Computed example of a mutant assay.
Amino acid sequence: MSETPSHRRPVMPGARHFEDLVGPDDMGDPSERSEAADRCATLLVRGAHGTDDEEVVARVIRLAETEGLEALADLWAGSPADSLAGCLWRLYLLRTWVYADPAAAAREFDAGRRRSPVHEVVAGVVDPPGPDEVRHLADLVLRGVARGDFADTLWRAAAFARVVSAGRAGAEGFEDPSGRAAYHSDLSAAKLLRMAEQLEHAARLEDDGKLA
């Protein structure tokens, strides 16, 4: 039996294809850009949901790498935190930060686990977690966009950000044995905590069927 249109797996959009998907005239006026961002986010999250196609899953995970974080920022960075587009921006920003310095992310995640109870959604990592483990965890979170329950994806990302924020807050002024200052980025402890709170709020909306 042939697949019905409602169950046909969509082609995953990349940033290079966003303009074709939404139309070239949709990317000028701010209100039209916002509408275009929402439309693309809906295609990515709702269209890919439940897929078992590993190629599609891999493309979701590496979208920021293949298309550029700047391209995603142009599309989603200004979207509200309680929207699909805003959630996607925070998920990709979090993974990009982890990949920028996985050793520091692992150190701060481990420190955060000792300061703050670890929610079950980030349990299961080795003790202590290393760079490979935190990269894998970041990939698992984004994998949920295509394969799992989106609310669970948001809860996992929020828990990870909350734990790392606790570790980062305790590392202020730290220097490693080589004398180098601790890794710092635009995602400060306060910003990570705020991101965690925003993702938790979005997860509640998704649980209630109100996230769009």
Rank of each mutant, 00 (worst) to 15 (best):
K191A: 13
A100H: 09
L94V: 02
A73M: 10
T96K: 06
V122S: 01
D82E: 15
L88P: 00
A169Y: 08
A166V: 02
A161M: 09
A196H: 08
E175Q: 12
G173M: 11
L75N: 01
D152G: 10
A111N: 02
P177R: 09
W76L: 10
R114Y: 04
R107D: 14
G112H: 03
E108R: 06
P117S: 09
A104N: 10
L91V: 07
D127L: 13
A73N: 08
G112M: 01
R114F: 03
G86A: 01
H119G: 11
S116R: 15
L140G: 07
C87S: 13
M195V: 11
V98Y: 08
E120P: 04
P102M: 09
G68I: 12
R113Q: 07
L75Q: 11
G124K: 08
R95S: 12
V118R: 07
V118D: 00
A123Q: 13
D149R: 15
S188M: 02
A202T: 05
S178V: 11
P131D: 13
R204T: 10
L72A: 10
H136F: 10
A146Q: 06
E175D: 03
A123N: 05
Y99V: 12
L84F: 14
L199S: 07
R135A: 15
Q198C: 07
K191M: 06
S83K: 10
L84C: 05
E70T: 13
H201F: 12
G179A: 08
E206K: 06
A138P: 00
S116C: 10
Y92Q: 01
V163E: 05
L88R: 01
R90G: 00
E120N: 02
A202R: 01
A77D: 12
G170C: 06
G170F: 05
V126G: 08
L91A: 04
G148C: 08
R115S: 06
R113G: 14
D149A: 14
E120L: 11
V141P: 00
G148P: 03
A77Q: 14
R180F: 13
G170T: 09
G78S: 15
A171P: 01
V98F: 12
L193N: 08
V145S: 04
L137V: 15
G112Y: 03
H119F: 07
G167K: 02
A181W: 07
S188A: 09
A203S: 06
S165G: 11
D127Y: 13
G124I: 05
L91Q: 02
H201S: 14
A166D: 05
A151C: 00
V118E: 12
G130V: 12
A202H: 01
R90A: 03
E67Q: 10
D74H: 13
S188N: 01
V122T: 11
G130Q: 09
S188T: 15
A169I: 03
R162S: 14
P129I: 14
R180W: 11
D152C: 05
R147Y: 03
G144N: 04
E175T: 15
